[in-house]
Design a protein around this nucleic acid. Sequence first.
RNA 1: GUGGCCGUAGCUCAUCAGGUAGAGCACCGGAUUGUGGCUCCGGAGGUGGGGGGUUCGAGACCCCUCGGCCACCCCA
Length: 431
Amino acid sequence: MSNIRAIRGMNDILPGATPYWQYLEQTVADLLARYGYGEIRLPVVEQTELFKRSIGEVTDIVEKEMYTFDDRNGESLTLRPEGTAGCVRAAIQQGLLGVPQRLWYSGPMFRYERPQKGRQRQFHQIGVEAFGIATADMDAELVLLSARLWRQLGIEDCVELQLNSIGSLAARDAYRSALVDFLGQHREALDADSQRRLESNPLRILDSKNPDTQALLDGAPTLANYLDDESRADFEQLCELLEAAGVAYVVNPRLVRGLDYYNKTVFEWVTDRLGAQGTICAGGRYDGLVEQLGGRSTPAVGFAMGMERLVLLLEESGALAGREPAVDVYVISAGAGAHRAALAAVESLRTDMPDTTFLQHTGGGSFKSQLKKADKSGARLALIWGEDEVAAGTVTLKPLRDSGGERRPQQTVPTGQLQATLQGAIANEIE
RNA sequence: GUGGCCGUAGCUCAUCAGGUAGAGCACCGGAUUGUGGCUCCGGAGGUGGGGGGUUCGAGACCCCUCGGCCACCCCA
């Protein structure tokens, strides 16, 4: 194929889908504003080192999924594979962390992965981060906020909240040793992937999809028994707050997150409607990251939601079904004089009727073909300028949609009364 | 990175024991010299993803390659 095509996994989002995106983005932006979060806009490219130090050197993301290249000055840069690192970098660099901060951002992320349903190489996230508050009420706020979002989007019945605590760094280290000890004794019972993970990231074995591995884990030490007191207390408090607020959750003791910077609370919103990539939103605490990246020690918690996955859910749930047609009035004209008159008149109507959509026919053609286009456009009304109308100083207003099975007659309107008649006709159509 | 399935008209798909392609929808025009939706008639549209091989002959068989979907892995 010699034609230039889009990069694999980097998709065009077409006009058929963008209404879902706009609806989703607008809903999220409004909701975050109501909770007092401020939007921060961040670069798509950062120093490679930022991601290595935050996400973790041995994670798959850093080892084999980053789009990394040398800038012209030889500096190694990377297309961001996630948003938290850049947000933390900006918060430190811009001195935002002297007081608690509630921030959000949105935009494309990049990971070199094999595309499948709900996963692409350029994907979009909205991320929410709260800095400076160590207590579990902050975690709860984020969960409540996300729960409200699903309700507002009408997908609350499709999603489930899973919670866990992975404890302090020390607690996790102790548990990791215990888990490796245990699994090491059953190495031959592990699948190849899990044997590999035993070296690279043993905690990830916990959420293996392999049934045999899961069965083996039934006898393994559990993370909960290794939690430090503070993590346990904070987790209990979070659960109490969620119960008090009426948010249902499932404690998943095998829920661990893939990025190194998490500690204590982790959570995921999952759905069973999207195939294998069912996590639509996930996050947790990362109290050590700010300091790790050179800032003053600052507790933090955040999450990110996958926009493509949410759009898929919205489409499936029919959230936007029954929307009104995009076009109100289709404008038809034939003959050079009539075309000039129509263009000028419609511009004037657009000024006076800012909420009405006018689609001006372009490219000529017979009345018949123009009417066909008008019908296809879904417009409710057509305005027709022809030589007769121009000579008489009138316009023809033709309803295109039946009313209760009745076809409605067109009418000839003097130009001076066009706007009033049109407004009346539109009001009549909307009834 | 691994595996399965799949690439034929703009879209959804046929055809076929290997004899150089068809339908529906969409599009354009006409029946209606200025009027859409229904109907009828006609038209345009394809180097059968690309390359190589087998063959008198390949969309069909073989190999390679590119791409798509789904799953593993990973993760939003």
